[in-house]
Every structure is written in C-alpha cells, then in structure tokens.
Simulated scan of single mutants.
Amino acid sequence: MARDVQFTFDCADPAALAAFWAEALGYRLQAPPPGFDSWEQALDAFGVPPERRNDAAAVIDPDGSRPRLFFQRVPEGKQAKNRVHLDVRAAPGLDGQARMAALEAEAERLVSHGATRLQRHEPEPPLAAGHIVMADPEGNEFCPD
C-alpha cells in the first residue's frame, strides 16, 4: 500500500526555516486548526507558553499533492553533511547552458531569501546534467537541479 510522506527537519528556528522553504518551493505555511483565526489564537487556547511557540512549524503544498515539510526545534546544531537532501527541480526539460542558466537564476533567488551557494557542478554528458549545491539558512544542503 502506498503511503503519504512528510519530510522532517531538525532545526534551531522552525518559523524561519519554514518561511524559507515555503518561499523556495512555492508552499504556504500550514493554517491553524479549525476554529482558530491564527496560530497565536490556537496556541493561547492550548496554553502553550511564549517560549515554546517556535518549537514547530509546517509548510504545505497549496495544491495538496506534494509532501508536507515539518520543522522541529532541537537543542543541538547541525553536525555533519546531510545524508538525505532535497533537489529543487528548477530546470525540468532543459539541458546544457539553458539548464545551467535556469539553475543560476534559481540560485540567485534563493540566496536573496537566505540560502548560501556552496558549489557549481558543470554538465558532463551523458550522465551528469549539472547542478548547484546550496545550503538553507541553517546549513542543510540542497540542490537546485
């Protein structure tokens, strides 16, 4: 049986990282539970103290077809290279210089939202189409691909 999937990020600032990934992927912040006009209103009703209100955040695909991303605060910082990373499909159907130009444009856009550019890999046909390695605002590697 097929299952839905959610990607979970351990992080220091769930709200900020959720906002970054919402921008990067065209997602939106998850709405508060039914019956509440805002997360602040819901958290007040649930008795969540102010210092715990950034313990978690989530973003969702507006169309509901792609996975939810969940961000949870953890006390430790990032320790090493990710074993799994997201590829942001920014140049579907393109190859060569057209592909790399689309990836460069996406990399510039993401840098303007807090990402860091790490490395560019040139196309090496027939197997390597080229990509750019980046890090989100907390150092998690990902690739415009």
Rank of each mutant, 00 (worst) to 15 (best):
D4F: 08
E40L: 11
K78I: 07
M1W: 00
R66M: 07
V5Y: 04
R83Q: 14
R73Y: 04
D95M: 15
P33G: 11
D145P: 06
I60G: 00
P75R: 07
A22H: 05
W21R: 02
M1P: 05
K81R: 15
R66K: 14
E122T: 11
T8C: 14
E108Y: 08
N54K: 04
D145W: 05
P62I: 03
K78V: 09
L17M: 05
D13G: 07
R73S: 09
M100P: 13
F70H: 02
A18Y: 03
P50A: 15
P49Y: 08
D13K: 10
T8N: 14
P144F: 01
A42I: 00
A2M: 08
K81Y: 11
A98M: 13
L69K: 00
Q119G: 03
Q6K: 13
P67C: 10
G64H: 09
H131K: 09
H85S: 12
H113W: 07
D63R: 13
F71R: 00
A19I: 00
L43V: 12
A57M: 00
Q72M: 12
A22V: 02
A42E: 07
I60C: 06
A2P: 12
F36H: 10
M134G: 06
A101P: 06
E141S: 12
V59G: 02
R53Y: 09
D95K: 15
P62D: 03
G47D: 06
A19C: 04
V84Y: 12
A129H: 09
N82R: 15
D87R: 07
L43G: 08
E141Q: 13
A31G: 13
